[in-house]
């Protein structure tokens, strides 16, 4: 599928989709969205790119092996889940900053939990997709 139109489009689509996925991730707590959907979108962005340019090219721009995202994501989620222990509260209690930050909005342990989910979803989806397309 090496059509010029498709390639040019996906060149611009990739950063846009990635930005969009982060946007979806961050707004999740108040409006439709969240880590899972955000992660899926980011994964789709990369897969789209690999359709246009091939696997090798995609891997060279990702640089990081997507497999590593899984343990990192899990660690982030678990740390976020047990972080309330630090202030003597049970696991999974939501901890929040009182004031919203610029651009990001409200920041709290749930957000980090969601970021972990986001990373795991990207990591596992890309691992599955890449290993399938490498094999065939």
């Amino acid at each position: 599928m090496k059509s010029i139109i498709f390639q040019t489009a996906s060149k611009y689509l990739l950063p846009l989709l990635l930005l969009f996925s982060v946007f979806i991730l961050l707004r999740g707590h108040y409006l439709p969205g969240g880590g899972f959907v955000g992660g899926l979108m980011a994964a789709i962005a990369f897969i789209l790119y690999s359709f246009a340019f091939g696997l090798k090219e995609t891997k060279s721009i990702v640089k990081l092996n997507p497999r590593y995202l899984m343990p990192v994501g899990l660690a982030v989620s678990i740390l976020a889940a047990v972080s309330p222990w630090l202030v003597n509260l049970p696991v999974m209690t939501g901890l929040w900053y009182d004031e919203p930050l610029k651009l990001i909005g409200m920041v709290g342990s749930s957000l980090f939990f969601d970021i972990g989910v986001y990373l795991v979803v990207i990591g596992s989806t890309l691992t599955i997709m890449f290993s399938i397309s490498e094999t065939i």
Partner: peptide, 8 residues
């Protein structure tokens, strides 16, 4: 939980 999106 300080969230408005119940699903999330």
């Amino acid at each position: 939980a300080k969230g408005k999106n119940v699903v999330n």
